[in-house]
């Protein structure tokens, strides 16, 4: 087999490999002295930036009602079919509200499409990444778990106004 032609001829020092190996060793040794970046999770918690896509939640207005009008667009756009909305009529001005709003967290892929499509800014991605459940039933989050007061979502809402 003829020798392959190299793009670049190596110098003798490079052919020895050893200098490069020592450079590599020096590099790793230096990084050994750097402080660690690990967060020790249950004690120290990562607080994500506003751009983070944690679990989707529903915005709860100051008067305790949900902002959602049960239009079902999030449910339609959801690529994972995670959302089920059952609308009903309400006496409020918005006429329509979700009698039932469920997100199946086993299906959800945190794509944020629901947030993007919502015409009311009623469903937003939160900073919550701690999702634990032990059965399929527990994984279906109803309104009780989904509603989050608007004050706690200021960050994200502002982010959406600026960048969406």
């Amino acid at each position: 087999m003829p020798d392959k032609k190299r793009k670049k001829d190596l110098t003798f020092a490079q052919k020895l490999y050893l200098p490069e190996i020592f450079k590599g060793l020096a590099l790793t040794f230096k990084s050994m002295l750097k402080p660690s970046v690990t967060m020790e999770y249950p004690e120290v918690k990562f607080v994500p930036p506003a751009a983070y896509r944690g679990r989707p939640v529903l915005v709860e207005e100051k008067d305790g009602t949900e902002r959602c009008v049960a239009c079902g667009l999030c449910s339609r756009v959801c690529p994972a079919l995670a959302i089920e909305v059952q609308p009903e009529e309400t006496e409020l001005e918005k006429e329509r509200y979700p009698k039932l709003f469920e997100i199946n967290m086993i299906r959800c892929i945190f794509c944020g499409f629901c947030e993007e499509v919502c015409p009311e800014e009623a469903i937003v991605m939160s900073k919550d990444y701690e999702l634990v459940f032990t059965s399929r039933e527990d994984a279906i989050y109803g309104k009780d778990k989904l509603l989050v007061p608007v004050d706690q979502l200021k960050d994200r809402l502002e982010f959406l106004r600026n960048f969406k």
């Binding site: 790793t28 990084s31 050994m32 750097k34 402080p35 660690s36 970046v37 690990t38 020790e40």
Partner: peptide, 10 residues
């Protein structure tokens, strides 16, 4: 441990 330090982990 050492590999962790090299990778700035714990």
């Amino acid at each position: 441990r050492i590999s962790a330090w090299i990778q700035t982990r714990l």
